[in-house]
Design a protein around this nucleic acid. Structure first.
Lengths: 315, 315
DNA sequence: CAGCACGATAGTTATTGTCTATCAATATAT
DNA sequence: ATATATTGATAGACAATAACTATCGTGCTG
């Protein structure tokens, strides 16, 4: 390992500038004896005298001139380490790949993409609809820059930034028994009554959490599972049972369908939506721009919503 | 003043080499927790993660790769401070590590080492017998200061300084058909008649070049391969076939054996022996002293020899 | 000659690097 | 499945180094 320090080189560079030990020490924010001793220590290590103290003002020796020149080059190269980091962190341009879960994509993408693309035209944003697991895998492999999904993930290598909270809502067929209620309690959900998304959708896991063990133990008896919320809505529209919807999925329903919505009683089960990225992610400027853009695109009801009960992801 | 230290950069460089905290720590002569904490401290200071610890073996992150690359440049520039001091002082001292290929070592080392050590007692010369490939690798990693081997290497990062050229000679058993000839033409070499050094010796590659495609395509039929030239000489002494020798290997043969030598007809196939070093090598004074010493130690026949046909290294 | 400026030196204190011991997580062996 | 080994991280103690305060020695100036 090298016997001298960047600090010593810095003292030498500063002394060459100031040609005065006291002023050089001031510039380095240390006392004069400190600077004196460190420079002397460096001279001993290198086996050369770098400054001629007998001259007034002091002057570098011939070898001192060469060492100082090279010390400046070293410092310039060191500064480039910091510059390369700032470079990557500071730019709001270049490619950025974002994954969004399917239960959020139809609601969120149309709302924020135009605004983001207009505000930051230098960013080449690539968006993919992916399930949570795929998003997490790709983040870990640094094949995806960020994801928008339901949290908490409880993964140490993934950093979560909360975007908003949205309550769950019941969507009931016209002849459903819960229609006589003002609101629905969680305990009133019946296992063979609720349509679910197919395996792999985090929304399914959350619905299972709501319906407690009844649903998780008897999945074999479920009549049908679907790949998207739209299909579930259609089933209910035909008079078949009920489904659970995130609020975001209800905001674009036609007026007739709005009558089939039934809110939960307090404490309202809620899901937390976050932007997630690998902890090694450096494109922080783009990240921040994206977060701001998404948050500003939310309807006021969601932007202001305060969560009462966040439903965990696992059963 | 800069917030990080050359020591920390050194730890990072070593960890990138070893990809293992324990071995990197050993290489730096500190304990593993020291290295771990200093690297973590640097990561905190820079605000980036340099290594992905979840991978086995650990890997640098994308930004880690850039920081490490730049750290190496910093180190090289720091070393130039020391080099410029030595340069001015004109000193020929300090450690110097030299690699020599096995087909040259017995001939060359006894000839120049005494003279060199006497002339430059301040230089701590370390000599290793290594194959060409190992020498090149170590030069690249700056784990070796120079090598003496057969060229041309055609490697942009390695600088070659020609030392001498030496012709190949045939060494024939007493009943060999080529004994009736004044000299041997290359086209007269028979593939199943020539003993070779084992794989990895550059001498083997050159012998294959001489014997054209016949040898390279039918190596499975070769009767025996040896690790040194001495064994090949013994085989021929027992009346078995022939071998090829560099001239340097013949200079110390006993008088009876000299009768078994048969020179090639013109243009005599020749190998080029050079001193090679990484282009970033800074110990130019010692290098020059070594070159001079080796050249002065050569017998006149080799020192004056003019090459007619340099045999390439590859088939 | 006295006073001042300046760099060097000595002793003390503060900070940082390093070590030992141990823990937690993961991988490997049985 | 369990036990053991490996690996990187963390905590506390110790060692080494940087930095401070006080002072000295030298040379210059008025």
């Amino acid at each position: 390992m090298l016997p001298f320090t960047l600090t010593q080189l810095g003292y030498v560079i500063e002394l060459d500038k100031a040609r005065h030990f006291g002023r050089a020490a001031d510039a380095c924010h240390v006392t004069q004896p400190t600077l004196s001793m460190q420079i002397q220590k460096l001279e001993d290590l290198l086996g050369v005298i770098l400054f001629d103290r007998s001259k007034k003002p002091i002057e570098p020796t011939a070898i001192g001139v060469r060492v100082i020149e090279q010390a400046r080059i070293v410092f310039a190269e060191v500064k480039r380490i910091e510059a390369s980091i700032s470079d990557i962190k500071g730019q709001i341009s270049g490619p950025f790949s974002l994954g969004i879960i399917p239960t959020l994509a139809p609601f969120l993408i149309p709302r924020f993409v135009d605004h983001f693309a207009t505000s930051f035209p230098e960013v080449q944003l690539t968006i993919e609809e992916l399930q949570t697991e795929a998003i997490v895998d790709r983040l870990r492999q640094e094949r995806l820059d960020a994801g928008v999904l339901v949290t908490p993930l409880n993964s140490p290598s993934i950093h979560e930034i909360q975007l908003f909270y949205e309550p769950f809502v019941c969507y009931l067929s016209e002849n459903h028994v819960l229609n006589s209620r003002n609101s629905v309690k969680e305990s009133e959900l019946q296992k063979n009554d609720v349509w679910l998304l197919s395996q792999g959708h985090c929304f399914r896991d959350q619905a299972m959490s709501l319906c407690h063990s009844q649903l998780s133990n008897d999945t074999a008896q479920l009549k049908f599972e679907s790949g998207n919320l739209e299909t579930l809505i259609r089933l209910v529209d035909r008079g078949l049972g009920m489904t659970l919807l995130p609020l975001s999925a209800t905001l674009d329903l036609p007026p007739l369908s709005l009558k089939k919505l039934k809110h939960f009683a307090e404490p309202v089960p809620t899901r937390e939506v976050s932007l997630v990225h690998a902890r090694t992610q450096l494109k922080s400027r783009i990240l921040q721009a994206l977060i701001t853009s998404i948050r500003q695109s939310l309807p006021q009801s969601l932007a202001d919503y305060q969560p009462k009960r966040v439903v965990p992801m696992t059963n």
